[in-house]
Design a protein around this nucleic acid. Structure first.
Lengths: 128, 128
DNA sequence: CATCACGGTATCCTTTTCGACACTAGGGGC
DNA sequence: GCCCCTAGTGTCGAAAAGGATACCGTGATG
């Protein structure tokens, strides 16, 4: 459902850049990875579906499921389903997913440093 | 023409990640930035339009122009037009653009390390 | 019995993105 | 006069990404 970002990898060395970008592209994947990576203090950083939903209220479950599935397909997150009565599903990063840490951190660092000046004029009081 | 990646910055801290991603999102921007950043040994790393085209043969000029314009609008690249007979236009990173270096490098490093297993088996002889 | 919680799915529709292709300007070369 | 070069621009249309909304099963609760 995603996977459009150039199928012909003919961009010489820049290819690696695109290949990585391709994995975290998808409007919400970056944030999901971020939450799974740094937001969770637990050793494994597992979050259940509803927890992720709470962290991203404006993402529909369809989209969240979707992005999560793509991340899973790309081997970045692992999905654990517990056959319980109120369904419980946990998502956690795989080793491959965790290896993206430097990338996500770089992304976050830049965003923090450059503060998205033209982006959110209404932000500024969001007591994160 | 781009600029869809969530307008409501309500993703708490993950927001910074998305904000950054937003700038390098766009199918070719990552590669363009990469070329402008590391591919060019010159002090400023200026590349003219045709040079970029040569580096990315499968991008149409319309798209290349487009991405370049967006990067310019985001203050990441600077466009210099020389009023010469065969038009000459050079693109180079702005300071802001250059500040993305760690991000691009992280992206490239990951891509190299994880070798895009399903991508191009013909790569492998480049150490850049 | 009706309702809620949880984690999805299915369907439909709109917005955005991308790609193909053609056309322009204007000096130089033949 | 005609074609080539560079760096675009314009238009058209297809496809994808994303969003809204509704529905599913099941055990506990009221």
């Amino acid at each position: 459902m995603a996977r459009t970002r150039h199928r012909s990898l003919d961009c010489s060395p820049g290819c690696a850049v695109e290949a990585t970008l391709q994995l975290i592209d998808g409007k919400w994947k970056g944030v999901i990875l971020y939450h799974l990576l740094d937001e969770v203090p637990e050793p494994e950083g597992a979050l259940r579906f509803s927890a992720l939903r709470r962290r991203m209220p404006n993402v529909t479950q369809r989209m969240l499921t979707n992005q999560l599935r793509e991340l899973e397909a790309d081997g970045l997150v692992h999905r654990t389903v517990y056959a319980e009565v109120p369904p419980r599903v946990e998502y956690r990063l795989t080793a491959r997913g965790r290896s993206l840490a430097p990338v996500i951190r770089a992304l976050k660092a830049w965003g923090d440093a450059h503060a998205t000046p033209e982006a959110s004029p209404e932000a500024g009081s969001r007591a994160a």
